[in-house]
Write a protein that binds this DNA or RNA. Structure first.
Lengths: 128, 128
DNA sequence: CGGAATCCTTGGGGATACTG
DNA sequence: CAGTATCCCCAAGGATTCCG
């Protein structure tokens, strides 16, 4: 199978070597994946992003953007206009992340009915 | 593109309708994805799982297993032996999750060099 | 407009001890 | 063996205020 040394970090003692954990540290947080998917439809400015993601705080928006920029997934471009304007867009690397994300979203859309059914059944059986 | 109504929850006011957030709530936590991938190689018993994931607490192992069972991703089977034995295995639904996870892991493995390079460059430029 | 800085709260989750 | 029950902490992240 395609999953081989994925858990090596557990025995190695470090978390940096494990790709699964590394990926979880990136997309596992509340906002990174949302942000990438929001930028998937095109470059956006700061407040424009904030308007499209109303429930993220400016702090987390700033922080998540900087993290993504740090990892080379997002590019930041400053326009020296009268009211300063900053544009964020996905780098090619960031765009490549849309594909596996898409698979996950597709899985979620297809599986949610079965998950909800299982959950109802589980809760119904356990509650009484 | 395949991503259409993914952000509807933001405008709808609820988080339950958004597939992205729903999936994040599942795999976003520290352990679910690790657990699914650990079970991908076959059914395991409780302490066997714990041994393969040394850095999870038994509390979180129990909790994560119950959540996955609740969602119909993991099946729990109790053997009424002298020392009680419980076996966990992925359901077909759980197994179907291995595929999109695999894509993500593959992406991580392929992209990590570029990410690390970007990070080094970013940190190097920002530190001074 | 695009942030940075500060304060404050919540709950995720670890450690430990006990049970059937 | 396979959990359950408690206690406790700390850091993720929200709200608010200030700045160039």
């Amino acid at each position: 199978m395609y999953v081989e040394r994925w858990n090596e970090a557990a025995s190695a003692g470090g978390t940096g070597a494990c790709p699964v954990r590394h990926v979880l540290d990136k997309i596992g947080d509340k906002w990174s994946m949302l942000l990438v998917m929001t930028l998937a439809s095109g470059a956006k400015r700061f407040n424009q992003l904030h308007r499209e993601m109303p429930d993220i705080s400016q702090k987390m928006l700033t922080q998540t953007l900087r993290d993504l920029q740090r990892d080379g997934l997002v590019a930041r471009k400053v326009f020296d206009t009268k009211p300063p304007s900053v544009e964020y867009r996905l780098t090619p690397l960031g765009q490549s992340l849309i594909v596996p994300f898409g698979h996950l979203i597709e899985w979620a859309n297809q599986s949610m009915p079965r998950i909800n059914a299982a959950r109802s059944h589980f809760d119904g059986a356990g509650a009484r």
